[in-house]
Write a protein that binds this DNA or RNA. Structure first.
Lengths: 187, 187
DNA sequence: GGGTGCATGTAATGGGTTACATGATTCT
DNA sequence: AGAATCATGTAACCCATTACATGCACCC
């Protein structure tokens, strides 16, 4: 059996489990679905769908359209559903840390005046906005997808994002106070 | 001038700014310093140091030792210090989201009985432990590095980890309640 | 005429982990 | 005897983004 790739393939299995889609559709759907916890680019999606077809996890149906290019619509096979289920039951591995902002702050003693404060302020603004977006997403989901059996799970992941961003904002506020204190100590 | 790589080189500049070190030392130091927000492997470190030497950001001095292999100790040049400062002043780009656990939970409706609960429980246990480790690190740093001018910055990054992990634990507790509610709804 | 959207895909490039290779010493 | 530590480095491999290439239709 052909290799089916890593997590990319699993994300595709999951999205196709919602309903059959083209590679293009998948990419478009990501920001409205798993966008807050996952990302995939066309350069990953198309090759992965090809491999998954070869491995029998999905089947392709080409739909001809007038004016627009053909669509290759993929749907899960039973093998695909099984693979998804099997993957779900395996514990997730924890991600390798790569947080550039914190790396800069760690070496913040060598930064020019005001640089650290600016970074933390921008981070805080972004996280505050994220909190708003999560709240809006939650409202939207509860209204538009109220009868979808997957809704509770979607809300859990959105909720995680909100918790995390709220914590980030709280940290940023404390840190700005501390940064000011440090500057005063110098003056 | 030769290419100096991306963020890996910058992390190395930062660590070498603490004091001159070998590539091996750098790798050993990571868990005790930037380990909670960054990671590098030997396969990245050694080639990066080579390139940085060629670019004039660091200089190498070989120390001979009896019994043990030679050490190549690198120290920053003025160009290296300038490069570090320049990098610090550029805003960090936000990381692409890749959170496998949340991806699994997003598709949790397709998981076998109890799987989601198990994942969230394990996640919570890991984050609870992380909170303890952050607290211990903070105490240790305040005691051992009390007079280091970089200490306040180190504490900020540790503090971020604590905030984040605390938020994760809080989310996990709420989510476990919700998962139980879902199971009851089925029964 | 020129941008945008639909839709597919490949290739070049860069980032990063793991495994391998070497070789002496010290600890169990 | 065997494993771990010190110390360096390379090579194979996987993962991921970006840019490129194609081509029609619709709108301004």
């Amino acid at each position: 059996m052909a290799k089916t790739g890593g997590a990319t393939a699993k994300a595709l299995l999951g999205l196709l489990s919602i309903h059959p889609m083209s590679g293009y559709d998948v990419r478009q759907l990501i920001p409205w679905s798993i966008g807050h916890c996952w990302s995939e680019s066309y350069g990953q999606i198309y090759p992965a769908l090809k491999q998954m077809t070869a491995a029998g996890l999905v089947v392709k149906k080409t739909e001809r359209q007038k004016g627009k290019p053909d669509r290759n619509v993929y749907s899960l096979t039973q093998a695909g559903r099984d693979e998804l289920q099997a993957w779900l039951s395996v514990p997730a591995e924890e991600p390798v840390p790569r947080f550039e902002l914190m790396l800069k702050l760690f070496f913040g003693a060598h930064a020019a005046e005001g640089v650290n404060r600016r970074h933390v302020e921008e981070f805080m603004a972004a996280e505050e906005k994220a909190v708003q977006v999560y709240a809006a997403t939650e409202k939207h989901l509860k209204r538009e997808e109220a009868n979808d059996p997957q809704l509770p799970y979607w809300l859990m992941t959105v909720n995680f994002g909100r918790h995390r961003s709220r914590a980030a904002v709280k940290w940023a506020k404390e840190t700005l106070v501390e940064l000011d204190r440090l500057e005063l100590g110098k003056a």
